[in-house]
Simulated scan of single mutants.
Amino acid sequence: MLRPAYTGEAADGGVRIDTDASPANVAFTGYAWFAVLTAAVGVVIAAVAWRAVQRGRVRGGVGWMLLAVFAAAAAAAAAYICGGFVVAALHPMPDVTQLQPGDTVTLVPPVEPGVGWVAGPFAAAVVYWCTNLVALQGQPQR
C-alpha cells in the first residue's frame, strides 16, 4: 500500500507514462519501503527473541540468533509475496485493448529487492547480538 504508482495515459495501443504527474523515483521508493519495513520487522523479531531469553524461559545463544535471522528472512519473503498481491488488488494491470486514447491509468512497477532481501535478517542479527552484548556487560564477572 506504500508503494507509489506511475500515472500514465493510454495512447497508440499502449500506455505512455506521464513523468510530470508521476512521483519521482517510483521504483526506488518501492525498494526503500521494502527494505525499511523488513528491517523493522527484523528488529521486532530480535527484540521478542531477546526478551524470551531475558525472562529465562529459554537459554539464549547463537541458535536463538539464527532462529531470529531465519524468522526475519521468512518475514521478508512473506512481505514480498503479500506486497505483490496487495499491489495487484489496488492497481490491477489494465487491459490495453480495452483502453481508449486519453484514459488515465496507474501502474506500480514490481519491487526488485536485490540487497534489500538481507535488511530484515541483518537487522535481526545486529539487534539480537548487540542486546546480548549489552546484557553481558551488566552481569557481574566470575
Rank of each mutant, 00 (worst) to 15 (best):
M1I: 06
Q100E: 15
A11S: 12
T131F: 05
A123N: 13
L2I: 10
V105T: 03
T106P: 00
A74M: 15
P101E: 12
G60H: 08
A73P: 03
A123S: 15
I17K: 09
P109W: 00
A47E: 13
R16L: 12
V134A: 14
F122T: 13
E9H: 11
F85W: 15
R59F: 14
P101Y: 02
A75C: 09
V127E: 08
W117I: 04
V105G: 03
R59E: 15
A76V: 07
C130N: 01
T7I: 14
D12K: 09
R16M: 08
M65L: 14
V36M: 11
V69P: 04
D12Q: 11
P109K: 02
R55N: 12
T19S: 14
E9A: 05
A52E: 11
H91V: 14
A46S: 09
Y80L: 12
G63Q: 09
P92S: 08
L66D: 03
A39V: 11
R55V: 07
E9Q: 12
R142V: 06
T38A: 11
V87Y: 08
D20W: 04
G8M: 05
A35C: 11
V41Y: 11
A71T: 10
G63P: 05
Y31L: 12
W117Y: 08
W50Q: 11
P4C: 13
R51P: 03
A124T: 12
A68M: 11
A88F: 09
Y128M: 10
V41I: 15
P23S: 02
Y80T: 02
S22R: 05
G120Q: 09
W64V: 07
A40D: 06
G83H: 02
A75Q: 07
L133E: 10
V87N: 10
W33K: 00
